[in-house]
Design a protein around this nucleic acid. Structure first.
Length: 284
DNA sequence: TATAATGTTAGACT
DNA sequence: AAGTCTAACATTAT
């Protein structure tokens, strides 16, 4: 469920809480998430949290001085432990993953799959469908940055990449290798704002149409971040609070209702296997 | 009971 | 070879 604005919301909220916090425990409750992945994070401090596309990357630093001062350890060993570069815990929420910051001693909510304990609280991964992924990797070379639609989607680049491709433009915008972070809701909304029919072959868009797509993304995505995401079913932010962006939806889930721009009737169809809402009257 | 769900990807098919 | 399409993953809610 979470797309760029939702993941961005979580990252910002995590960044206000986690840096400097030490990982006290990691419990993996769903074996699909990998067995010993969490062990090596224990005793380390969070440096910062970043978003890359729809992934949440928690940068975790070197082991804290006190925690590796086991008495009588030979110095070589201690040194070795502290020489590493730290880890990155990478979370991808896929369809139904959520993060929740729990600060009271209540029991874990249903479908909790992972618990990361800090002194200030517990970070829970809740995921009914169990598609979410979690990996703790030692920090290596920085990954190449993905095109970040929050920093703008240059129309020219989009046109170049689209070339002569016949892939529907909606599918094109959702290709994470091209544009990192747009999913089904925002692809529908961006194309409606840009007045472009989602079925159009991506290679058929004229330069001015890509410019409209660029502008649409620049309106829709930052507003969705400011609204802390779109709650149409189960999306909640880190503190369990619904987003507000559903108020701004023009087509998504509005099947049969009236287009607020032209008065036409919002249509629904399956495109590339995904539900697609659009206004046939004003999206050409 | 059948269907769809805010994501990704392996494998099949052009 | 490269582009495109489909099914599969696991589970709930309607």
């Amino acid at each position: 469920m979470p797309e760029l604005p939702e993941v961005e919301t979580l990252c910002r909220q995590l960044n206000a809480i986690l840096p400097g916090e030490k990982v006290l425990a990691v419990e993996i409750l769903d074996p699909r998430l990998g067995e010993g992945e969490g062990e090596r994070l224990i005793g380390r401090k969070i440096a910062a949290v970043y978003r890359r596309g729809k992934s949440i990357r928690i940068e975790i630093g070197k082991r804290d001085r006190l925690s590796d001062m086991s008495p009588e350890t030979d110095r070589g060993k201690v040194k070795k432990i502290r020489m590493d570069k730290g880890f990155t815990a990478e979370l991808h929420l896929r369809m139904t993953g959520r993060l929740f910051w729990q600060t009271d001693a209540t029991s874990l909510p249903p479908y909790t799959r992972l618990v990361m304990t800090f002194s200030a609280g517990k970070l829970l991964l809740i995921d009914p469908r169990r598609f979410a992924t979690f990996h703790a990797r030692s920090r290596g070379a920085a990954l190449p940055p993905l095109a970040n639609p929050l920093e703008g989607l240059p129309a020219r680049r989009l046109g170049e990449i689209a070339g002569m491709r016949r892939l529907p433009v909606k599918h094109f915008l959702m290709d994470q290798r091209i544009v990192a972070g747009i999913g089904n809701i925002y692809a529908c909304e961006i194309l409606h704002h840009a007045c472009v029919d989602p079925r159009r072959p991506s290679g058929s868009l004229a330069a001015n149409e890509w410019r409209k797509v660029e502008k649409a993304a620049a309106v829709i995505l930052p507003r969705a971040v400011a609204c802390r995401g779109t709650t149409v079913s189960d999306w909640r932010d880190l503190f369990g609070i619904s987003g507000e962006n559903q108020k701004h939806l023009k087509v998504y889930l509005r099947d049969g209702e009236t287009c607020r721009r032209c008065g036409g009737k919002i249509g629904y169809m399956k495109l590339s296997g995904r539900g697609t809402w659009f206004c046939p009257a004003c999206q050409k």
